[in-house]
Amino acid sequence: MAADGLDVMENDKQQQQQQQGEEGGKEQQDVSPDMLIKHPLQNTWTLWFFKQEGNRTWEECQMEIASFNTVEDFWALYNHIEPASRLKLGCDYSMFKQGIKPMWEDEHNCRGGRWLINLNKQQRASELDNFWLEVLLLMIGEAFDEHSDEVCGAVVNVRSKGDKIGVWTADAKKSESILKTGHILKERLNIPRHVSIGFQAHTDTMAKSGSTAKNKFTV
């Protein structure tokens, strides 16, 4: 499910808006069979929420919110949660394929890395939500083509110094797949050519000595 999947999701969003905008009191119309059938996704995805609380460990503060495997259930979930831009500082949203936890140590993630997009505080109001939604649609719509199987999930971190969106992949040694994924990501987010985004291996991030890890690839 690639471009067609994204088209279905956009059409579904438009249909939701049309239904909400219709005036009440009209005679009930015959419902198209297409409206009664949900559109399945290729994978089941799980949304996680992180908020540090008391003496609980980082892993204990990762809360599994809900899983979905259809276009309609994705929009039902997305439309009933706070936008990323309205999360409190220090909180995260993560969306990963079912069975993969949003942590480096997970067996599906430990050999991989992430494309990292840094946003300044001003971009929180203007771009964060659009970027995050586009990343989600790219993932669940399998829009990374034959490289979609390498994509594990994505995380958005809301922080005082600036927000981050990371798209996680499974194997940091698959350079061709990583670069193709990065180019698609940059193109779909309309990131200017003169602005680079970097890919960092999780092992490098864990072993970093400064505030940032060294980029393994850039596009």
Rank of each mutant, 00 (worst) to 15 (best):
G54P: 03
V8S: 15
N79Y: 05
E127I: 06
M95C: 13
N69L: 02
I37L: 11
I191D: 08
S67F: 05
V167K: 02
G25F: 12
K101M: 05
H108R: 11
G25T: 10
G21W: 06
Q200N: 11
E72T: 06
H194C: 10
I37K: 14
Q17G: 03
T218E: 13
S211F: 10
Q123L: 12
D73V: 02
I65M: 12
Q16I: 14
M139Q: 09
V8W: 07
Q19I: 12
D4E: 14
A170Q: 09
E53M: 13
D30A: 13
D204Q: 11
R193C: 09
L179W: 00
G210N: 15
Q29G: 07
D7L: 14
A154M: 10
S177D: 05
Q98A: 10
A84W: 00
K186R: 15
G54K: 12
S177P: 06
E82V: 10
A66P: 00
S67Q: 07
D106V: 01
E10Q: 15
E72F: 06
Q17T: 13
A84F: 01
T44A: 13
G99W: 08
P102L: 00
G25A: 06
F50W: 12
L119F: 04
M1L: 13
L136T: 02
R188D: 03
S177K: 01
V155A: 08
S85G: 15
L89W: 08
G25I: 09
H39G: 06
T181E: 09
G25V: 12
H147F: 07
G113V: 01
I81G: 10
I81L: 12
Q123R: 03
S148D: 05
D204A: 09
I184E: 04
V155I: 15
L116P: 03
N215T: 06
